[in-house]
């Protein structure tokens, strides 16, 4: 029993990181009906930016904030230059552009920073595990950070005029323009936000898995599974689904399939959700966009 509890608690810790990426994916999906296959690589690249800043002597939280600003701007620029022009192109074109981005980020990172694993610092100290040895300080700290971020994002969308406008632009661009919302700018803003949320996830996961250009492949897969499990049209679902995926990963790893089939577990969940409940736990079914 103790063991299960341990698995669940540490699952929630990693799950909250998946939840951030799931949320970023769902935000982009709601606004553009596109799936950002490069979301993971963007987060990875942001994490390298943070590492570079830290190695240059910037204190951790300074580097953290600068990285968020960088990611936010980079996300906006990418949306403006690449994705906006392809907004009305067939699925293949936008998928192609995202895969192109994925390749570019992954390989440029490999080129600049090499493919060797690098340790990434945690701001929460090494110290002994807490909660009766169930959670490392970093796990607790990163969970807290992610929860704060997710709450802030929720509050932004729920209580601010800009957040409401972003939601309006995502759900109904035509009516949004008619009430004077600059929809294109809202989409860029959404992309910037998604990129910044991804960057936080990258910086929180890097101390656990070490930093390398392929660091986010597995995280992205779990985030996909989380987003689908929660319902790709539901931001709340994305968060719940992401956290659930962390728990499922741990339980399955410890008691069912072992850690060697982690990715396959995510694949199976993706397929099962899509076949049996494509709308996920919280979402609504969407018509196919062929």
């Amino acid at each position: 029993m103790e063991g299960v509890l341990h698995q669940i608690i540490s699952g929630i810790a990693t799950g909250s990181i998946y939840a951030s990426i799931s949320l970023a994916l769902v935000m982009i999906f709601l606004a553009t009906h596109q799936i950002n296959f490069a979301q993971g690589e963007m987060a990875m690249f942001s994490t390298y930016v943070a590492l570079t800043l830290i190695q240059a002597g910037v204190p951790y939280w300074g580097a953290f904030v600068l990285t968020l600003v960088f990611s936010f701007i980079a996300g906006m620029v990418l949306q403006r230059t690449l994705l906006e022009p392809l907004a009305r192109a067939p699925v293949l074109a936008s998928v192609g552009a995202f895969l192109g981005l994925l390749l570019i980020f992954n390989n440029i990172a490999g080129w600049i920073f090499t493919y060797t694993l690098q340790p990434f610092p945690t701001p929460f100290g090494a110290g002994a595990p807490i909660l009766g040895g169930m959670l490392s300080r970093h796990e607790l700290g990163s969970t807290a950070v992610t929860l704060v971020v997710l709450t802030a994002v929720w509050a932004f969308f729920r209580f601010t005029k800009l957040g409401l406008a972003l939601r309006g632009a995502a759900y109904n661009p035509v009516s949004s323009r008619l009430v004077g919302i600059p929809v294109a700018r809202m989409l860029s803003l959404g992309w910037g936000l998604a990129a910044a949320i991804g960057a936080i996830a990258g910086m929180m996961v890097a101390p656990i898995v070490f930093l390398d250009p392929n660091m986010m492949a597995g995280v992205l897969l779990y985030a996909f599974a989380g987003a689908l499990l929660g319902g790709i049209t539901s931001p709340l679902g994305a968060v719940v689904g992401g956290v659930l995926m962390g728990v499922i990963e741990n339980i399955a790893g410890a008691y069912i399939v072992g850690t060697e089939l982690k990715l396959t577990t995510a694949l199976v969940i993706i397929v099962v959700v899509l076949v049996f409940k494509p709308s996920g736990l919280f979402g609504k079914t969407l018509a196919n966009r062929v």
Binding site: V91, G218, L221, L228, L267, I270, L274, V275, P278, R289
Partner: peptide, 21 residues
């Protein structure tokens, strides 16, 4: 049955998981 983006997603996940299998 899913079509469109969902198929892209599933097949992407499949490609990521293959080496592990």
């Amino acid at each position: 049955r899913l079509g469109g983006l969902y198929l892209a997603l599933v097949t992407f996940a499949m490609a990521v998981a293959v080496p592990q299998l």
